[in-house]
């Protein structure tokens, strides 16, 4: 079983979705994340073990490689795709409560800003790390963040901004949310941001890449 879990983690790290997937070329014709997950379930491996010892280590390794500049956005995307496909087999166990997520994250690009690629990568890495992520999309007003927080009160909030002009909206949004929900953790990211800026606006942290955010969340939550 340990061997199969390892194969699963490798399939996810390398983006081998299923048997039919042509990528990566050196694994053509071999089982992918879907088949390994199916096999593990048939072998009565606990779904929680499949998630934590098979899937998450694969996403963790690819996330670390991204943070180290060894892989790039397409490799993250294809790994996340493999993970998503394999996760469909675990859905019944999430629905029944047999497997639980690490926690909930609300994510969005702040009002006035339409840039979503960085935010999407963060979403995928967090999902791969076992979080339930509610993606509010782009151009998200502070009211929308609050409204989502009312639905998911235990959530962490992650905000993104690419423009120096919309960074200011981020400041107002953080203040607004903290006023109504001081205990909610808010993390910020985006090209022009810095830790200093996050401190100044009262956010709980800034991370330059998705993997360092995921590691932080895993450590503190």
């Amino acid at each position: 079983m340990k061997k199969l879990l390892n194969y699963l983690s490798i399939a996810i790290e390398r983006g081998k979705e299923n048997l039919d997937s042509p990528y990566p070329p050196d694994l053509k014709g071999k089982p992918g994340a879907y088949e390994y997950t199916l096999q593990l379930l048939e072998d009565k491996c606990p779904p929680d073990t499949i998630l934590k010892k098979g899937m998450m280590p694969g996403m963790d390794r690819i996330g670390q490689k991204f943070a180290d500049g060894k892989v790039f956005i397409p490799e993250i995307l294809i790994a996340a795709r493999a993970m998503k496909t394999a996760m469909t087999l675990l859905k019944p166990y999430f629905d029944s409560g047999e497997v639980v997520k690490r926690g909930e994250v609300i994510i969005g690009t702040v009002a006035g800003d339409l840039h979503d690629i960085g935010k999407n990568i963060v979403r995928m890495v967090l999902e791969g790390d076992g979080w339930e992520v509610y993606d509010l999309g782009v151009d998200v007003t502070r009211e929308k963040f609050i409204s989502s927080l009312e639905e998911h009160p235990e959530s962490i909030i992650c905000m993104s901004a690419l423009l120096t002009t919309t960074m200011m909206e981020m400041k107002d949004a953080v203040t607004f949310i903290k006023q109504s929900s001081p205990a909610t953790r808010i993390y910020v990211g985006g090209a022009p941001l810095t830790s200093n800026f996050a401190d100044k606006i009262g956010a709980d942290g800034y991370f330059p890449d998705p993997h360092s955010l995921a590691k932080h969340l895993a450590d503190v939550i």
Partner: peptide, 12 residues
């Protein structure tokens, strides 16, 4: 490019 690197690998 992004803030931290090129968007796709040198191979791509």
């Amino acid at each position: 490019g992004s803030q931290i690197d090129i968007l796709v690998s040198p191979e791509l």
